[in-house]
Design a binder for these strands. Structure first.
Length: 726
RNA sequence: GCCGAUGUAGCUCAAUGGUAGAGCACGGCUUUCGUAAAGCCGAGGUUGUGGGUUCGACUCCCACCAUCGGCUCCA
C-alpha cells in the first residue's frame, strides 16, 4: 500500500501500482480532465506513472500550471519532429529540447528547410494534434534499447542513448504502443495526448553543429514556440514585436545616433553627432569617477609592433580574430609565416613546411642563406632566430587590446612598492576581426573603445583593488538605472589546454577574485571554463531586448602578463617583486554599453544623456523671435538645444520633437512672450505649465547634475495648466 | 567561418518575365495656427554590386558585398 499525500494535506491510501491519473480522478473528474501531468515528490511525471513506496506527495499539474508549459512544448517538439519525418522520411532526428519560450529540434536532413516549408509542417502538426493520439511511454533495458537503436542506423540517437543515465531507456510512441505510430527515444515526461498541445508556431530554422562542435556534422535546428492558448501565443508574438521596437539598431537609425557603411567596413561604427554626444557625456562621467578613484589617464597608440603581441601571447593565439598585420616588405611577411609555422609546430625539430619556406627565402636573401636555418634546435631557439631576422622590419598589428601598451608605460620607469597601486586608464580603441556572422549593431563590432584601465599592485593590495573595480561597475551601471544584470565569475577549466601560466598562479588569482566577490555581497554564479586565457574574471552580463546576453563590465586578475613582460617593483626589502595586474572595464565597450542603453531607455534617454535636451517650438510667426531668444539663452545655459520655428502647426512641431524623444519641449506663444516665461511639456505628454527661464534652467541643471534623481516634477512649478489663464 | 533568409527613393513597404509605385521624410508655395500629423505642387531610382539566361529581368540562375535570425567564437 502507498499513502498518497495531496497538497491540501489530505492523505489517501492506495494499492501499489496505482497511476497518478487514478488518484487524480478520485479527487475529481474535472481535475482529471484538466491535468496534463503530475508532480510526485517534486518530480514532474506522466499521468500514467505508477505510484510506489510507502508514501508519496502527489500534485496534479494542469495546463494553467507554469510547470505544464515546458512539458507541453516538449510534446510539441515531438509532434513537429513527426511532421517533418512524415514529410521528409529520410530525416534523422538528433536532439529536441525545450528552451525559453519554446523548443527546437535538431535534425539531419539533406533538404534544406526554409520558411516556405513551415506552413506545410504546421498543417501536418495540426492534423496530428487533431488525431488526439496518446503519448505512450515504454521502457527497454539498456542492451535491448541499444540493439534497437543501432539497427535503426541513427548515430545521433545511439549517441544520446549512450549519454543517458540509468539501466533502462524510455521511448515515447505518439499513439498506442506497437501501433506503428511515430516514436522517439525520450526521457519524458509528456502531456497525455497530442490534443493537449495548445497554440504553436514554427519560428525559424537555423544551422547548428552536432554537440556544438564546428568540426562535427552540420544540422538544421528548427525553432518553434507553443503556448497554452491561442491568446497566449498572440501575446507572445506581440511581445516580440514590441521588443523589436526597442532594438537599438532601429532606434539608432530613427534618432540619427550612429550608422554603418559597407564602404567603411562591416562592424565599424560611424558615430553621428547625436550618438557621439551620448558617448562623450558618458566618457566625461567616467573620467570624473576615474580621477576620484586614483586612476591616471594615459594615451597610447592604436597600433603596435607584432613583437609586442607575440610577447603578450595575443599573437598568434587570437590570430583568426585579428585584422591581418601590416608588413613593410614581402620578406617580412614571409618571415612572419615562417615564425607562425615554427610556433605551430611546437616541436624540437623543424617541420618540412618550415624548412621548405626557409629554403625558398634563402634563395633570394643572402644573409639568410649565410646564416642557415637552425632546423634541429628547440622551437624557442628557432623563434628567437626568426625574431632576430624580423627585428629590423617587423610588422605592425592594429591593437586588439590595450594592456601591452599600458604595460610598457609601467615598465618605462623603475617602480617602488610605495608607488603601487599604479592605475593607468584610457578610453582605448581596439580592433578585432570578429567572424562575419557575429557582427551586428553596436553590441558586436570590429572596432570599439573600452573604458579600460590596468592596475599594477602588490599581492596585499589585490583584494581591495578587485573590490574597488566591482564597486565601479556597480556604480556605473547604477547611474543609468541598469540594475538588471547578473554577475558571473569565470574560472579555469583545468581539463582544457587553452590557458597560459602556472597552476599556482591560477589558484592564487581564483582565490583572490572569489574572496573579493564574496565580500562585495553581490549574487554571482561560478562558471568553469569562462576565464580569460590569462586569468579568472568577473563579468557583468545583461540581456538585450530580444533576450540575448551580453557581457558589459569585466574585472580580470592576471598573474601571467606580468611574468611574460618581467614586470617588477622594488619592495621594502629592497628586492625585486612581481606585481599583479588587474584588467578592468566597468562598461566594457562604449559601443556595446550604449547599444544596451538605447534599448534600456527605448531611446528616451534621461536628460543628462539626451542628445537633444530641449526643443523650443514657436506657436506662430508672432512668437518666433522670442522662441529664438529662448533657444539662445538655453544654449548659453549649457543645454543641448534645437528650435522649430517652421510654419507647421504647434501640434506637428510637438509631434516631431516627441518622436525624437526630446525630454522637454518649450511651447512659446504670444502669452509666454508677453509674460517672459516658457511653457514646458515632457515627451511623455505631460504639460508642466509655465515658469521663468531662470527657473527652467535651474531645474534642468539640477536634473542633469543628479543624473535624473530630481526630475521634471521640479520644473514648471509655476501655474499648473488647469490654473492657467487661457 | 557555417546554415537559412533578406536587399526596390533618406525611412517603411508595393509592383504574374513586358513603361518601377505609395505613405512618411525632403524642397517650393499657400497658411500663422496653443500642446502627437494643415493644404497644394515638386523633386527624388543604372531595383546592393558584377556576371549570366531571355526578344525583354526588380522578378530566373551564379558570384561577391551588406543586413537579419541562429550555430560556433568572443583577449
Amino acid at each position: 500500500m502507498v499513502m498518497v499525500r495531496l497538497p491540501d494535506g489530505n492523505e489517501i491510501e492506495h494499492c501499489d501500482g496505482v497511476t497518478a491519473l487514478d488518484v487524480i480522478r478520485e479527487i475529481g473528474p474535472g481535475l482529471a480532465r484538466a491535468a496534463v501531468a503530475a508532480k510526485l515528490d517534486g518530480n514532474v511525471v506522466d499521468l500514467t506513472a505508477t505510484l510506489n513506496g510507502d508514501s508519496v506527495n502527489l500534485q496534479a499539474i494542469t495546463a494553467a500550471d507554469p510547470a505544464a508549459l515546458p512539458l507541453m512544448r516538449h510534446s510539441c517538439a515531438h509532434v513537429m519532429a513527426e511532421a517533418i519525418c512524415s514529410l521528409w522520411p529520410q530525416t534523422r532526428l538528433v536532439y529536441g529540447p525545450t528552451v525559453e519560450d519554446g523548443f527546437y529540434y535538431d535534425i539531419d536532413l539533406d533538404h534544406g528547410l526554409s520558411p516556405a516549408d513551415f506552413e506545410q509542417i504546421e498543417a501536418r502538426m495540426t492534423q496530428i494534434v487533431k488525431e488526439d493520439r496518446p503519448f505512450t511511454r515504454y521502457e527497454l533495458s539498456r542492451s535491448e534499447a541499444m540493439t534497437r537503436l543501432e539497427s535503426e542506423g541513427n548515430p545521433y540517437k545511439v549517441d544520446n542513448a549512450e549519454r543517458a543515465e540509468g539501466d533502462s531507456l524510455s521511448f515515447y510512441v505518439t499513439g498506442a504502443r506497437d501501433s506503428g505510430c511515430w516514436e522517439d527515444l525520450c526521457r519524458g515526461p509528456h502531456v497525455p495526448s497530442t490534443a493537449r498541445i495548445g497554440a504553436f508556431k514554427i519560428m525559424r530554422v537555423a544551422g547548428a553543429y552536432w554537440h556544438g562542435d564546428a568540426s562535427k556534422a552540420k544540422l538544421q535546428r528548427v525553432y518553434g514556440t507553443a503556448w497554452a492558448t491561442k491568446k497566449d501565443l498572440n501575446r507572445y508574438l506581440h511581445r516580440l514585436e514590441e521588443a523589436k521596437k526597442r532594438d537599438h539598431r532601429k532606434i539608432g537609425r530613427e534618432l540619427g545616433l550612429f550608422a554603418f557603411d559597407p564602404l567603411v567596413g562591416s562592424g565599424l561604427v560611424l558615430w553621428k553627432p547625436r550618438g557621439a554626444v551620448i558617448r562623450y557625456t558618458l566618457e566625461q562621467f567616467i573620467r570624473g569617477e576615474l580621477l576620484r578613484r586614483g586612476y591616471q589617464p594615459v594615451y597610447t597608440p592604436q597600433i603596435g609592433r607584432l613583437e609586442l603581441y607575440r610577447k603578450s601571447g595575443h599573437f598568434p593565439y587570437y590570430k583568426d580574430s585579428q585584422y591581418p598585420p601590416l608588413f613593410e616588405s614581402d620578406r617580412a611577411r614571409e618571415l612572419n609565416v615562417l615564425w607562425e609555422l615554427a610556433w605551430a609546430s611546437n616541436s624540437d625539430q623543424a617541420v618540412p613546411a618550415e624548412i621548405e619556406l626557409f629554403d625558398r627565402l634563402a634563395v633570394s636573401h643572402e644573409d639568410l642563406r649565410k646564416a642557415g636555418y637552425p632546423a634541429g634546435e628547440a622551437v624557442d631557439a628557432r623563434l628567437k632566430r626568426i625574431g632576430s631576422w624580423l627585428a629590423q622590419e617587423d610588422g605592425y598589428l592594429l591593437r586588439p587590446m590595450n594592456c601591452p601598451h599600458h604595460i610598457q608605460i609601467y615598465k618605462s620607469e623603475r617602480r617602488s612598492y610605495r608607488d603601487l597601486p599604479v592605475r593607468l586608464a584610457e578610453f582605448g580603441t581596439v580592433y578585432r576581426y570578429e567572424q562575419s556572422g557575429e557582427v551586428g549593431g553596436l553590441t558586436r563590432v570590429r572596432g570599439f573603445t573600452q573604458d579600460d584601465a590596468h592596475i599594477f599592485c602588490t599581492p596585499e593590495q589585490l583584494h581591495d583593488e578587485i573590490a574597488g573595480c566591482m564597486d565601479e561597475a556597480r556604480v556605473g551601471l547604477g547611474v543609468v538605472g541598469l540594475n538588471d544584470y547578473r554577475v558571473r565569475v569565470g574560472l579555469r577549466d583545468e581539463t582544457s589546454s587553452k590557458w597560459v601560466g602556472t597552476a599556482k598562479n591560477w589558484e592564487l588569482a581564483q582565490v583572490a577574485i572569489l574572496e573579493a566577490v564574496r565580500a562585495s555581497g553581490m549574487a554571482y554564479t561560478e562558471e568553469v571554463g569562462e576565464a580569460a586565457f590569462y586569468g579568472p574574471k568577473v563579468d557583468f552580463i545583461v540581456k538585450d531586448c530580444i533576450g540575448r546576453e551580453w557581457q558589459l563590465g569585466t574585472v580580470q586578475v592576471d598573474y601571467n602578463l606580468p611574468e611574460r613582460f618581467e614586470l617588477s617593483y622594488v619592495g621594502d626589502d629592497n628586492a625585486a617583486h612581481r606585481p599583479i595586474m588587474v584588467h578592468r572595464a566597468p562598461f566594457g565597450s562604449m559601443e556595446r554599453f550604449i547599444g544596451i542603453l538605447i534599448e534600456h531607455f527605448a531611446g528616451a534617454f534621461p536628460l543628462w544623456l539626451s542628445p537633444i535636451q530641449v526643443t523650443v517650438c514657436s506657436v506662430s510667426e508672432k512668437s518666433a523671435g522670442y522662441a529664438l531668444e529662448v533657444y539662445k539663452a538655453c544654449r548659453d545655459g549649457g543645454l543641448r538645444m534645437e528650435y522649430d520655428t517652421s510654419d507647421d502647426r504647434i501640434g506637428a512641431k510637438i509631434r516631431r520633437a516627441t518622436m525624437m524623444k526630446v525630454p522637454y519641449v518649450l511651447v512659446i506663444g504670444e502669452q509666454e512672450m508677453s509674460a517672459q516665461t516658457v511653457n514646458v511639456r515632457t515627451r511623455e505628454g505631460k504639460q508642466l505649465g509655465s515658469c521663468t527661464l531662470p527657473e527652467f534652467l535651474a531645474a534642468c541643471a539640477a536634473e542633469i547634475a543628479t543624473h535624473g534623481e530630481t526630475t521634471s516634477a521640479e520644473i514648471g512649478r509655476g501655474s499648473a495648466p488647469s490654473e492657467r489663464q487661457v
